[in-house]
């Protein structure tokens, strides 16, 4: 393929993504008050964490190497990152397979993975406006949490990679529906595992040493834990301390490997699709 042809192809893909993202944005903007629920829910959950950790730190200056201020910063950052990377590709794909509607996507001149990714882009732009920005302001001005990343460039790259990793992991969960048809149980299990292992509920450094070692090799830490630690400026897991450029590099490699796996897994699943639904 010549260079102009390749460039044209890339431009076409960007145009397709822009169109799908815009349509998704418009579609979900009709339900923007649903997104705005986060303005209430996010700070309320954070308030619970605030009380818990204030009580816990009352007798201790530092727990697992984190001070109260660092802990609050971690939770604030992790919550905000979640608004940027949140995903439901698993649910969507499972529903399409379950109902047989996936057939219509097989007939389209683009892969479903790319379509779903473009949908996520549009959906999260909406999330950025109606969830991220208001909650960021509440965390920064009401709770006075220092949320500006130590290195904005690396933090942006890491969040972007976290966005991709979240999508790919969820998409793989959705692909299991090609075999299981109705996979809500599997979905729940994976989502729970994903959230625990990605550090949404507690920094991964709180888990026992052996568990931390397992988590280090799993893809989940790259969803939320790594971006949150990159934003706070330090990274440590299972006794391994890495510089920010190193961990972001590892995160990029992990995303590339996951992308390859997702494409192969999805192709395998497509072969099983009968178009009937269940």
């Amino acid at each position: 393929m010549s260079r102009p042809e390749a460039a044209e192809k890339v431009i076409k893909q960007i145009r397709v993504m822009k169109a799908v993202a815009f349509a998704t944005y418009k579609e979900w903007a009709a339900y923007r008050t649903h997104a705005m629920v986060s303005i209430f829910v996010g700070p309320v959950y954070f308030l619970v964490q605030y009380f818990i950790w204030n009580a816990v730190y009352a007798a201790k200056g530092s727990i697992n190497g984190l001070t109260l201020e660092q802990m609050m910063r971690y939770f604030g950052t992790a919550a905000l990152i979640n608004y940027l990377i949140m995903d439901f590709a698993d649910w969507n794909l499972q529903m399409l397979i379950h109902t047989g509607k996936y057939l219509t996507y097989m007939l389209r001149p683009m892969s479903h993975i790319y379509f779903a990714l473009s949908q996520k882009v549009g959906h999260r732009i909406l999330g950025f406006i109606f969830e991220f920005v208001p909650v960021f302001l509440i965390f920064a001005f009401v709770f006075r949490i220092p949320l500006i990343p130590a290195n904005i460039g690396y933090a942006a790259v890491s969040v972007l990679l976290g966005f991709m990793m979240m999508f790919l992991v969820d998409y793989c969960v959705g692909v299991t529906a090609f075999w299981l048809t109705r996979a809500s149980g599997i979905r729940r299990m994976f989502l729970l595992l994903r959230d625990i292992c990605s550090g949404v509920y507690l920094p991964l450094s709180f888990f026992p040493g052996t568990v931390q070692k397992v988590m280090f090799v799993l893809p989940f830490q790259f969803i939320s834990y790594v971006p949150a630690r990159v934003c706070t400026g330090t990274y440590e897991l299972a006794g391994i301390v890495l510089g920010i450029p190193q961990i972001v590099g590892i995160q990029a490699l992990a995303v590339a490997a996951m992308l390859l796996f997702t494409v192969l897994f999805s192709r395998l699943g497509n072969r099983r699709f009968t178009g009937v639904g269940a």
Binding site: V56, A59, K60, G185, M189, L192, I196, Y201, F206
Partner: peptide, 30 residues
């Protein structure tokens, strides 16, 4: 799916107690 869901709900409901145990395992307490 029903039995799997029951088991998974059971596992997922253990999340808050698990987090509390992890907090207490550091020597901290309420």
């Amino acid at each position: 799916d029903f039995f799997l869901c029951c088991v998974l709900i059971l596992v997922s409901e253990m999340l808050v107690p698990l987090l509390t145990m992890l907090i207490y395992s550091t020597g901290a307490s309420f």
